[in-house]
Simulated scan of single mutants.
Amino acid sequence: MKKALICGVSGQDGAYLAKLLLEKGYAVYGGSRDAQMASFGNLKRLGIRQNVELVSLSISDFRSVLQTLLKVKPDEVYNLAGQSSVGLSFEQPVETLESISIGTLNLLEAIRFSNLPIKFYNAGSSECFGDTGSLAADEMTPFRPRSPYGVAKAAAFWQVANYREAYQIQASTGILFNHESPLRPERFVTQKIVAAACRIANGSNETLTLGNIDIARDWGWAPDYVEAMWQMLQHEKPDDYVIATGHTHKLSDFINVVFQTVGLNWQDHVQTDASFFRPTDIAEGHAHPAKARLQLGWKASHTMEDVARMMVEQRS
């Protein structure tokens, strides 16, 4: 039986990945800063809490990481930990950089030090690219991040590339574009929209206030994307892959589908407020995920419209 260690198992991607790996027959270990006190609500929601072996692990502490690797001896390690909100990174830039960049470095160095034949997946982000305009980003597109989160993810990406080249670590990064699900917390704008629309449809007279609704993103379905993570580590050669649907939509389009799904006109219930705008933001995000399709056989199976409807249906 293969063993996998998921760092950040309590988040959206960690929970869906744990479910996928359990279905594939893995023994799944989930790392969390405080495994005794954390609620692991997402694992409970997916009905897999009792099937995941939880371990207390702080990836910002090298000793903690090394001890965990030597104890578990996993075949695969998935690094999904660290501060995960772009918006919050402007308020907490130091914590963001340390949790993402230092955490990734500790994992890589512990794998090198342990000398175990571990395959490593690193969660990269489209935020590394910054604003590419109408250019669809692929694996050769230069990084010009425009947020502390993007800067941290870019640093982690190059750490992985360096360890792969210098130490022959079997390490890959998935450069993931936006991917959503009902497991998203409400600090993410997609879930904020869904939650408000459902409350309004149930009689609330509130108005939903948002920032810039003209931004455009490539939105996918999170369970599709964790499949790509697993496929990367099954490929004979470690590499980096852009993971996305290849289709970009404005946030106002997402809002429209959500409100249509609950039978409302969004323009009657949504207002914008410039104070919600980020200090720097990406106007458009476009992706070219051809490499993942050609080399991994992976392709997104859900559109933005599917994602918006499923998030509403699984909440209402």
Rank of each mutant, 00 (worst) to 15 (best):
F188G: 00
L210C: 10
S252K: 13
L294W: 12
A171V: 06
W230Q: 13
L5Q: 15
P223A: 10
H269Q: 10
E186Y: 06
P185Y: 10
S275N: 14
A197H: 04
N162M: 11
K3C: 15
V226L: 05
H269A: 09
S101W: 04
K3L: 12
L69V: 14
S56K: 10
S204G: 05
L57E: 15
D240L: 02
L22T: 00
S56F: 12
W158I: 04
F113P: 05
R49A: 14
Y149K: 00
K2G: 09
A38K: 08
S125F: 01
G246Q: 08
H247F: 07
G133E: 12
G14P: 07
Q260S: 14
A137L: 05
I243V: 14
F40I: 09
H249G: 03
N51R: 02
I48E: 01
R315D: 07
Y167P: 05
A283I: 05
E180A: 04
L88Q: 10
D218Q: 03
S172R: 05
S99R: 01
A161Y: 11
D306F: 03
P182K: 08
V28Y: 04
T209P: 01
Q168L: 11
I48L: 07
N205R: 14
H235E: 13
P93I: 08
S301V: 04
V270L: 10
Y29Q: 13
L176Y: 08
L66V: 13
L183W: 11
S32C: 14
G30W: 07
L22M: 06
D306A: 07
K153G: 03
L80Y: 06
S58I: 07
W266C: 10
S316P: 00
N51Q: 15
A196R: 03
N79I: 03
T261H: 02
Y167M: 13
I102W: 14
D138A: 05
T68F: 08
R164V: 07
A81L: 06
R217Q: 12
E180L: 00
Y225R: 02
R33I: 13
F120I: 05
G220T: 04
D240R: 01
L135D: 14
T173N: 09
M311K: 01
L80R: 08
E206W: 12
I118S: 11
T207N: 11
S101M: 06
A81G: 13
R187F: 14
W158P: 00
L176N: 00
R309W: 03
S172N: 11
F188Q: 03
E186M: 05
